[in-house]
Design a protein around this nucleic acid. Structure first.
Lengths: 206, 206
DNA sequence: GTCTATAAGAAGATAGAC
DNA sequence: GTCTATCTTCTTATAGAC
């Protein structure tokens, strides 16, 4: 990894731990193994480093959407995958979503930055909501609609179903961001949630 | 309100909007209507203002517990209130919990500070979890146990029930902290959640 | 591209008059 | 208790040698 990327990487880590204002340029430089002035050969100023992180994040968001098989243009194409779904598959989807968000190297650090900076301006607030509320919601809601259509799931109000399915994932995700030691506890509770959710809303099992 | 308290109040507002590091002593002083040096007659330094906020918060936490009728020493004394409970009462409890946390003047500002500062040190992380995860959990869990004992509610796994009941409140609370404009949307969704939760777990109606 | 030296400015805090 | 003036320190950023 070249110096420019290593600066971005160390800055991302530091910003995610302390927030933008508490990280000094000299601190980033030290982690990279250079002196502060050298850093200005790669980025115009401190803000430019932060902007580059945001930009990189936006780039990865596209890829992430792809990785999660979201296809906003043609959701019907994914239908076959979810029409007939078992309770185990539900646990698998939920756990996958949880562990992906929790452990993904870049995503998890960036989520912490958004958490810290969310009240600073509306852009950050909107970005946070889009990534950790509205995005997962519309994705999950789409799945439930497909599952209901396939007959393997109850066709209750999908908004509420989605809220009840995703909210525990969200709560435990933010809990583990804050206290990583509680991951095992969270996973145990989460699996119980998925099983019970499956019992409540699950229709004909395949 | 005397100057000392007004300093605390303005500092609380500013810290909750920008975080500790982004608020300057002169800024707090300006809001109060004095010059920065005058502020040092009331508090030893900037950190002392922050510490006073934490202390005040701890004091209010006790009162809050009282307001919510938590009686850890003798939970049975509250039993009569919850033994026979209707779906409407459930909505009332949930909405009350949500609106109390969302709008309480001091609580809501302090929650934002905790949100911003939660990754700074373990004390803040523990405080956040205690106030917005473990506290509400144990309170709500106690209620469900009483309700199950009273026969008005299913006696399912109370941990999962509590998670499924409270997580949507938590998610929508953090959403409204971030985007206050979405409060109406959140309340609508929340009521649907409570009704559906009541249908799922509600036993004999009274 | 990295360094040392240093400028420029911001922010916390103190001194001492009123 | 509040003010103006000032000190000190910290932090960003630049200049210019190598």
């Amino acid at each position: 990894m070249d110096t420019k990327h290593r600066i971005l990487d160390e800055a991302l880590t530091l910003f995610s731990q302390k927030g933008y204002a508490n990280v000094y340029v000299g601190e980033i430089a030290e982690k990279v193994g250079i002196k502060a002035p050298s850093l200005y050969k790669h980025y115009r100023n401190k803000q430019a480093i932060f902007d580059a992180i945001i930009e990189e994040m936006n780039k990865r968001y596209e890829e992430q959407a792809g990785a999660l098989n979201i296809n906003g243009m043609n959701p019907a194409s994914d239908a076959s995958l979810y029409e007939n779904i078992s309770e185990d598959r539900l646990v698998e989807i939920g756990t996958g979503l949880f562990l992906y968000f929790l452990h993904d190297d870049y995503t998890s650090r960036f989520r912490k930055i958004l958490t810290i900076e969310q009240f600073h301006n509306k852009e950050f607030a909107a970005l946070y909501s889009s990534q950790y509320v509205d995005g997962p919601f519309s994705y999950q809601k789409m799945l439930f609609k497909l599952m209901a259509a396939g007959g393997s799931f109850a066709s209750a109000d999908t908004d509420v179903m989605t809220l009840q399915f995703y909210s525990p994932i969200y709560l435990l995700l933010t809990l583990c961001d804050r206290e990583p030691d509680r991951e095992a506890e969270a996973c145990k509770l989460l699996e119980k949630h998925f099983r019970q959710f499956g019992r409540i809303y699950g229709g004909r099992q395949k």
